[in-house]
């Protein structure tokens, strides 16, 4: 479960880098793309420096929106350190991001979605009862996200991810299909904004196809693959479903 969660995180971060174009304002790079590009470069060059440079530019900025991106950046750094088998640094960065989001007053739907997501990733660094508690917290935050804005794709994606990776004996894999179907029906952004997050579409399709593939529903794999490539053509993580 932990490994699959980690892989899904890596996937969605890679995928967002490629699939973000539709959300960009013409001729301008969104902040998410900036961070995702930095993660891609960091993984490619095997150095955290590109992410550290972005973090440097964030250090002087104040406001909730910049807290969000700081937390998101820490999650990306966690992914980088995890890929380098540096679990201690990976855990530290996730923890910093979670603490930062917890301190935000007047959390928005995006804050709750990201917090729920980061908490679900942090579960792999916990054991026993602590894992259970964190699982409940992450799900509660994801629920808050969709309650605040039922049209926020990221809230539904996080719910889908949590349910997908929760073992069946703990009640998992029951609702992920409906959550992810809901997610793919929503836009990445209700209104274009280069300072707002836009992740979610790729990982919703990736997980949904993985779910159908895992439960041997080939027809649905083909059906949703066709839908996915219309929305996000040339998405690498979906290529493996091309010949299903």
């Amino acid at each position: 479960m932990i490994k699959q969660s980690f892989i899904s995180v890596l996937f969605f971060l890679f995928c967002n880098i490629v699939a973000f174009g539709s959300c960009l304002q013409e001729g301008e790079k969104s902040f998410q793309v900036k961070i995702d590009d930095s993660l891609e470069l960091a993984l490619h060059k095997k150095t955290v420096e590109p992410l550290a440079n972005v973090e440097q530019s964030l250090s002087s900025k104040k406001g909730n929106i910049w807290s969000y991106w700081q937390a998101y950046l820490w999650m990306c750094k966690s992914v980088y350190f995890a890929s380098e088998q540096q679990d201690s640094e990976a855990k530290e960065n996730l923890e910093a991001g979670i603490n930062l989001l917890n301190q935000v007053h007047n959390k928005t739907t995006e804050d709750y979605a990201l917090l729920g997501y980061m908490q679900s990733q942090y579960i792999r660094y916990t054991k026993g009862m602590e894992s259970g508690i964190l699982s409940v917290k992450s799900k509660r935050n994801a629920n808050k996200s969709v309650k605040l804005d039922p049209n926020n794709i990221r809230g539904w994606v996080v719910l889908g991810i949590i349910d997908f990776y929760t073992p069946k004996q703990y009640g998992g894999k029951e609702k992920c299909e409906s959550y992810l179907l809901k997610a793919i029906g929503l836009p990445s952004q209700n209104i274009v904004n280069k300072y707002r997050p836009s992740w979610g579409k790729v990982e919703a399709y990736s997980l949904l196809l993985a779910y159908y593939n895992g439960s041997d529903q080939k027809d649905k794999v083909r059906q949703y693959y066709q839908m996915a490539i219309k929305e996000i053509p040339n998405e690498p993580s979906l290529k493996k479903y091309e010949n299903q």
Partner: peptide
């Protein structure tokens, strides 16, 4: 306020932040 969306209700393509 930074990054607030400003747009027209019936013509959302007319937007800025």
């Amino acid at each position: 306020v930074f990054a607030a969306n400003v747009f027209l209700a019936q013509h959302r393509c007319v937007n800025t932040i």
